[in-house]
Design a protein around this nucleic acid. Structure first.
Lengths: 333, 333
DNA sequence: CGCCAAAATCGAAGCGCTTCGAACATCGAT
DNA sequence: ATCGATGTTCGAAGCGCTTCGATTTTGGCG
């Protein structure tokens, strides 16, 4: 193993000089810097992470708690993970993979051992049992999602309430007089997934304000449930002409079933949804949608956590404003 | 920060004694062990990972290279990841998340810096460009998948060739005289995903041996492609009565379309597939299938890698024998 | 009762790096 | 020539742990 000592000898300088060339924490003459860098390449030197961590008390590792067996949407979760890992590398951090399933205490374990400098937590629920312990962690923590009690914690999320409001408003502005929301299966609401509840609240707030009749439906992803749900939504008494869908898994079967019933989108039914852009884009009928900006949310989480590693900062909740893309699946009535 | 020194003082022993209590590498009297353990709890001691890694030259971390943006099956990938992380923890290892997208050299980077003791590589292709560099990594490496040239590398995978043979044989034994294989979209074969090719080879080997007419179809996951593919498969000239499906994403639309055409499984068409058990189980029609044993494969990979960390061992390719579960979706003819 | 091997414990030397104060060199201003 | 000020480099002290040889304790046995 090549050590910094050998690099120093090869370049004819002291160890500390090599260290400063690497870290840039003190000024080094161009000439010396060049020589050192050449030696590093010539010898194939790679700094030892353990030694570095020990001496600097910084592991340059971020702990990421991921729901690996969750029922919901793996692809979206992957988008988050992917963006977090990429952003972390931009800041010169690596990512330690922790699972939600491994239970609480993981955040504490890795920070107490100085395996990670900070923690990012995915898939946060309204009444997330991990919250109290996360609050005790002696390192920066950022949650992706907003628990009910987020006192003293950093959170990043899409503004789902506004998203719900916007989607309802979008349909209302187009003249729809009766609209429906298809959400997640009951289990998701029972579990207290905060985003589902927040979107619902925004939706109902807007329809309430406008005095619009609005029905809300919980729906599972299988074909039968979708069909049954659609029967309910389209029940003639309602006169529903606009549909908000907040359930990615339902989209495919839904469009299929609409076609089977010879209902055109948007001629017979306007549909707007909230899902990742690439999903909305690639459906049988591309749908007007509000994006789940996984990429940005992940990047922001990393940025927050690294910022707090640099300097103390008060906890903060950051809600990303929704972005609506029109793909022609809604029309005036 | 509580250090081993303070634990030693609190327990009235030397640092080394505490260390030996923790590692079990030398015998310690029951009495002393108890005292030390009490002190550890009392003080809330957590060993510093960096210091430990530096002194022992073992990070107790496994690097895992995951395809985070791949087109294919996220849920299956997650099953692998999940099982690997869980197994790793069983052996007291943590997992550093590396992405396939970050490019080659990641394995070298983390091992050269002693951030990870060994590497597990997912989503390996037939002619995987990473293979040469992985061979150079100075640490145990295990690939999940078998590249064409696996000289000197450890590999773990399902025996897809045997799986292909078994599925063909299963249908043939039931008296089917003409069978078809629905595989992945062309892109997957072009990319040289080794498992697809190996299954195909096994399938053709078996049908060849038995002199069975057999057609092979490449198929994308969208409804239109499935329908078109089915037209082709069921073309009356073929007289196809048995179907092997090696494409998880196609299963849902396929069964839907069969029902639409009023074709019963297995009365009109016997169907057997290769996919995770829980998927086969929960389809509209539960399917007889060969499992993708993600759980076991992940566990084996971890076991191999840790074994090679203990003692030098010759590289090895381990192919898991397929396990077929009958769910009644095939019948005699 | 003394001896010796085995068991238990200690002390100290690193592991490879960062960081701080000090030393040295350079140079424009006095 | 002299003096700071500024820029550059060095030396050494740790960071918290593991590990190895040495030392002490124990207990069985002649």
């Amino acid at each position: 193993m090549i050590t910094i000592k050998e690099v120093a000898r090869h370049a004819g300088v002291s160890m500390s000089t090599v260290s400063y060339v690497l870290s840039g924490k003190r000024s080094i003459s161009e000439e010396t810097k060049r020589r050192v860098e050449q030696s590093i390449v010539a010898l194939g030197y790679h700094p030892n992470a353990g030694a570095r961590a020990l001496a600097s008390s910084r592991s340059h590792v971020l702990g990421l708690i991921v729901p690996l067996r969750s029922d919901h949407n793996m692809p979206v979760i992957m988008q988050f993970v992917s963006s977090i890992v990429a952003s972390a590398r931009d800041y010169d951090y690596d990512v330690l993979l922790l699972t939600k399933e491994a239970g609480p205490g993981e955040a504490h374990r890795v920070t107490a051992r100085s395996m990670a400098d900070a923690i990012i937590v995915m898939d946060v629920e309204s009444a997330d049992p991990r919250v109290p312990e996360l609050r005790e962690v002696d390192a920066p923590v950022v949650l992706l999602g907003v628990p009910d009690d987020h006192q003293g914690l950093n959170c990043v999320d899409l503004d789902f309430a506004t998203a719900g409001r916007q989607m309802a408003a979008h349909l209302a502005d187009l003249g729809h007089r009766s609209i429906a929301l298809i959400g997640s299966p009951p289990a998701v609401y029972e579990r207290g997934t905060s985003y589902a509840a927040r979107l619902l609240a925004g939706f109902q707030h807007e329809t309430g304000q406008r005095n619009l009749p609005a029905s809300v439906h919980s729906c599972a992803a299988d074909y039968e449930s979708v069909s049954a749900c659609l029967d309910d939504v389209l029940h003639s008494d309602r006169g529903t002409t606009g549909l908000v869908v907040h359930n990615e898994a339902v989209l495919g079967p839904l469009l299929l079933e609409l076609r089977r019933r010879s209902l055109e989108v948007p001629a017979d039914l306007s549909v707007i949804t909230l899902c990742p852009d690439d999903v909305a884009q690639n459906l049988a009928v591309p749908l007007t949608s509000i994006a789940i900006p996984a990429e940005e949310l992940g990047a922001i989480a990393v940025e927050m956590v690294t910022a707090r590693l640099e300097r103390e900062q008060a906890p903060e909740v950051r809600l990303l404003q929704p972005r609506l893309t029109n793909r022609g699946s809604t029309s005036a009535r």
